[in-house]
Design a protein around this nucleic acid. Structure first.
Lengths: 132, 132
DNA sequence: TGCGTTTTTGACAATCATTATCGTTGCCAC
DNA sequence: GTGGCAACGATAATGATTGTCAAAAACGCA
């Protein structure tokens, strides 16, 4: 029963992952990020990349997307809750906010007596510059 | 370059999977369904279960959900587009329709020039009968 | 109804992202 | 400076899903 002091230690590896995410555009897989770190000369283990990403995701500092392909994608995203509009051809992503959707989801869940509500929403389409 | 005649053949295995889905409530994984079929004495290969489920999903006859756990879940669902409100403890699921969400998603996508739009939305919560 | 063609099946192996393991390392508090 | 304890990381394990390919079954047509 740990009671406090989440004590997230400030390690070189955590900083490296966080910094990399800050510079990257778009979504990248854990394996991607790991490869990039090694290219930069940062010595970070793949396991640690996974752990760090999970931690950041839990803390709400990054966003996780689970595309049909089966690979988890991570991205430093703006604060607050939002969703993604993803081009299924080139992957270009637009962040979209939908306050109406948020409240709708909460309301629907409440109507059925569900508590502690969260939701996931992804929109897929073909962006203007991609051939259909 | 196949050109036509998808010619979906009517096989015993396909019927078995489809029938089973018709009787089941809630979501089940491919492996689950496979085990149930074997219990019934139906001799169906796991590979075939996967293929059949994929086919049914493509045809829009069943619904696929990809929970964080990582296992795909399949369910015979009502016609038309809808979403799911899932209890993250017991898995109890409620189908919910959200016309407002549909049109919102389409509108947002169109605003950004995205075509051929689809979306996925799942709501997670803790249902009234489950301890939090 | 019988036959040939084509799809489908299914056992098994391969794939591959993610997670567990566990000894070592290094951060942080005192 | 030093000790405790969380984080790290190389490797192995896991486990769902997909690929393979010969054999079997279904359908169309004569």
């Amino acid at each position: 029963m740990s009671e406090s002091s989440a004590a997230v230690r400030n390690t070189r590896q955590r900083s490296a992952v966080s910094a990399l995410l800050g510079e990257m555009e778009g979504f990248h897989s854990a394996q991607d990020l790991h490869a990039m770190l090694r290219q930069r000369g940062e010595r970070v283990g793949l396991t640690t990349v996974y752990r760090t990403l999970q931690g950041l995701a839990d803390a709400g500092e990054i966003d996780v997307m689970r595309p049909p392909g089966g690979e988890h994608l991570y991205r430093r995203c703006s604060e607050g809750h939002h969703h993604h509009l993803v081009c299924r051809v080139c992957g270009r992503t637009v962040e979209v906010a939908g306050p109406a959707v948020e409240s709708w989801a909460d309301r629907v869940a409440a109507q059925h007596g569900y508590a502690d509500v969260s939701h996931t929403l992804e929109i897929f389409g073909t962006c203007p510059t991609c051939p259909r």
